[in-house]
Simulated scan of single mutants.
Amino acid sequence: MIDTSMGRYSYCGYHCTLIRCRIGRFCSIADNVSIGLASHPMEWVSTSPAFYHGRDSIPKDLASLDYDPAPAETVIGNDVWIGAGAFIRPGVTVGNGAVVGMGSVVTRDVAPYTIVAGNPARVIRTRFPEALCRRLEASCWWEHDPAFLKAHSDLMDRPEEFLRVLEENT
């Protein structure tokens, strides 16, 4: 992890590369996931770092130009599940509650509570009916006190009931 922050109760599996990421709470990131890798200058004659200054493992005797290969910040919302072997381009935002299927290549933003998969990743469906997705997003349940979440963790398999209790207590 380079220049990456990860929220409470989130975790990352083995052999992941996370560069310039802001990861929310309660995220599950499987093994072999790559997020926010550096880019190369696609609009130049050559994409090789031999032609630009910077830290790299190749000789720089041809370098006369400046290029910043640092990726844009990638934002992973709260309660996001990213499957094994997924790749997420730098600068992408993956919304709260979204699911990225294993082996997916995410090149565009993913809306909250949306399931995407494939190469390139495409929308499969939403996790819940639209109205429930909106309510979950608006609830920001991941920001609530851990004691409250623990007291009502038996409702996690019943989203409507969990939201009803949450809404009654806020």
Score class of each variant (00 low, 15 high):
residue 15 H to F: 14
residue 125 R to I: 01
residue 141 W to H: 03
residue 112 P to S: 00
residue 58 I to D: 02
residue 21 C to N: 04
residue 130 E to V: 01
residue 140 C to F: 14
residue 135 R to G: 11
residue 51 F to G: 10
residue 146 P to W: 02
residue 15 H to N: 14
residue 155 L to P: 15
residue 168 E to I: 03
residue 70 A to R: 14
residue 146 P to Y: 05
residue 168 E to Q: 14
residue 146 P to V: 06
residue 72 A to W: 02
residue 94 V to H: 07
residue 67 Y to N: 01
residue 31 D to R: 02
residue 139 S to E: 07
residue 47 T to K: 10
residue 50 A to T: 11
residue 1 M to D: 10
residue 53 H to W: 08
residue 101 G to D: 01
residue 107 T to Y: 02
residue 113 Y to A: 04
residue 6 M to K: 04
residue 124 I to F: 12
residue 77 G to R: 05
residue 68 D to H: 12
residue 35 I to H: 13
residue 78 N to P: 11
residue 100 V to E: 09
residue 12 C to T: 00
residue 15 H to G: 04
residue 87 F to D: 09
residue 124 I to E: 09
residue 124 I to Y: 12
residue 82 I to K: 10
residue 161 E to F: 03
residue 12 C to D: 00
residue 163 L to K: 04
residue 23 I to R: 10
residue 73 E to D: 07
residue 32 N to D: 11
residue 6 M to C: 03
residue 162 F to Y: 14
residue 37 L to P: 09
residue 33 V to A: 11
residue 119 N to W: 06
residue 40 H to I: 15
residue 32 N to K: 06
residue 164 R to K: 08
residue 164 R to E: 14
residue 95 G to K: 02
residue 19 I to V: 10
residue 91 G to M: 02
residue 47 T to A: 15
residue 11 Y to P: 00
residue 153 S to I: 02
residue 125 R to T: 08
residue 168 E to H: 10
residue 134 R to T: 06
residue 65 L to Q: 07
residue 124 I to Q: 13
residue 99 V to K: 07
residue 130 E to I: 01
residue 106 V to I: 10
residue 71 P to C: 05
residue 138 A to L: 04
residue 64 S to Q: 05
residue 89 R to F: 08
residue 31 D to G: 00
residue 35 I to L: 11
residue 115 I to Q: 08
residue 123 V to E: 15
residue 19 I to Y: 06
residue 85 G to F: 15
residue 93 T to G: 04
residue 105 V to P: 07
residue 122 R to K: 14
residue 33 V to Q: 13
residue 36 G to L: 12
residue 27 C to P: 09
residue 109 D to G: 02
residue 5 S to Q: 07
residue 110 V to S: 05
residue 16 C to S: 00
residue 163 L to A: 04
residue 67 Y to G: 01
residue 37 L to I: 11
residue 164 R to P: 02
residue 151 A to L: 07
residue 127 R to D: 04
residue 24 G to E: 03
residue 138 A to Y: 11
residue 68 D to S: 12
residue 165 V to A: 03
residue 76 I to Q: 05
residue 26 F to T: 01
residue 62 L to P: 00
residue 1 M to C: 06
residue 134 R to Q: 11
residue 55 R to P: 07
